[in-house]
């Protein structure tokens, strides 16, 4: 068998394998992607909440993307407490101003960053939240102060549509 012939045969087989592999990949993708959120789930990504009834010191919990969102109207003491904390004392340093656009309103995902439980309101060593699953303590700004959770509770994308309505997502 001449050298040339061998090369050509190798090329033919390599090309066949390569083209075949592309096809297998292209076929597998839809089977994987079907498990991603579908169009109807994505369409529900934002929700509007009426907060006109929420007085200072009160928290409401709403469902957004299947998870609880805490909307707390904080008292002046809580705001002062949150602002007074030194950044060095924090495990996940973040200023209160960066977490609450309007200091009176704290909007955050009510999910412990440790393993996803829902923390309890007005509990724990820092007057904020306390996660009963593995004992994480959060302060009045929802920042992690003590316990196994690695980061502060997440702030979702939200905006005030008007003074009574918050749009989350």
């Amino acid at each position: 068998m001449s050298e040339k012939k061998t090369n050509r045969r190798d090329f033919l087989f390599t090309a066949t394998y390569a083209v075949g592999a592309v096809g297998v990949g292209a076929t597998i993708w839809p089977m994987i992607d079907q498990m991603n959120p579908d169009a109807s789930v994505k369409a529900l990504a934002s929700t509007e909440v009426d907060v006109s009834e929420v007085n200072p010191g009160k928290t409401i919990t709403v469902l957004w993307r299947g998870k609880p969102v805490f909307i707390r109207r904080r008292t002046q003491e809580e705001i002062a407490e949150a602002k007074s904390v030194k950044l060095e004392d924090l495990k996940d340093p973040q200023k209160d101003e960066d977490r609450a656009k309007d200091p009176e309103w704290l909007v955050m995902l009510g999910v412990c960053t440790h393993l996803g439980c829902v923390p309890l309101d007005q509990k724990g060593d820092y007057n904020g939240w306390f996660c009963p699953c593995h004992g994480s303590h959060y302060d009045t700004s929802g920042r992690i102060r003590k316990g196994p959770a690695p980061t502060n509770m997440e702030i979702p994308k939200y905006e005030f549509v008007n003074s009574n309505t918050i749009k989350i997502g």
Partner: peptide, 13 residues
């Protein structure tokens, strides 16, 4: 119908 309309590649599958 949900599969046909909303699920990613649902119609194809």
């Amino acid at each position: 119908e949900h599969i046909m309309r909303d699920v990613n590649y649902g119609w194809l599958i």
